[in-house]
Amino acid sequence: MLKDITLGQFFPGTTVVHRLDPRTKLILTVLYIVLLFIAVSWASYGVVFLFLVCSICLSRIRLKAILSGLKPLVILILITGLLNLFYTRGEHLLFRVWKISVYWEGVRTAVLMALRIMLLITGTLLLTYTTSPIQLTDGLEKLLNPLKKLRVPVHELSMMMSIALRFIPTLIEETDKIMNAQKARGAEFDTGNIFQKAKAMLPLLVPLFISAFRRADELATAMESRCYHGGEGRTKLKVLRMERRDWIALTVGVLLLVLVILLRRLGL
């Protein structure tokens, strides 16, 4: 059934990585991305890679899950690699076929770029694999809190996001039901050309939209009945608290940043 799909790709667990405050993980992820972009040498890549491997080991996320997360992006990685391979010019020509010349520098950049994308994806995968969507929105809301002064509706945005997450499974289930009901009336969703297919979607989309609006209306009434009146004066069941492990993790992150900057300075 459709509703069995794991959404947001969150794998619940109790490891250190899981228990880290979502804010810590968000900051570390940003830091990690910065690291990847200032890392230029093999040595600095090695440092970043080591950091990632350690984190994955600590989180007990299986390699298989990470590989399956990378799979949909293989083509993107290949294209980036090939573009870099053919378009980078340098001094050490490796070979030339017809109008295409490949330089040693091209090979280097291609491999580094492919590596960079893979590391980038793996790092963000690790964040979503170990942090529930609700924790993520909570963390984001807290981190973006200062923006409230600039009249950015931070609370409203994060409430919208968590409600959207809450209703995804419900709407998927509903799609399933309506689809079956229309199939029972002879609808065919997978035959014909693109226009016929689009037209065949109407009996699915119209009821789905109407139902979504009805749900939104009822939910708003229910939320108001439960004293919802925006973010003002709101407390939280689960207060995010920075623990020792969070400070340690952040310190490690900053040290790595310093290390990579040093390596860059030293030209290593």
């Binding site: 609700i134 968590s162 809450r166 939910l219 004293c227 709101r234 407390t235 939280k236 069941l237």
Partner: peptide, 18 residues
């Protein structure tokens, strides 16, 4: 259509939080 959160206890907390 009246359950707001995607964890049971978070939903029950919604009213008191407000």
């Amino acid at each position: 259509n009246q359950i707001v959160a995607n964890v049971v206890e978070d939903d029950v907390a919604f009213g008191p939080e407000n």
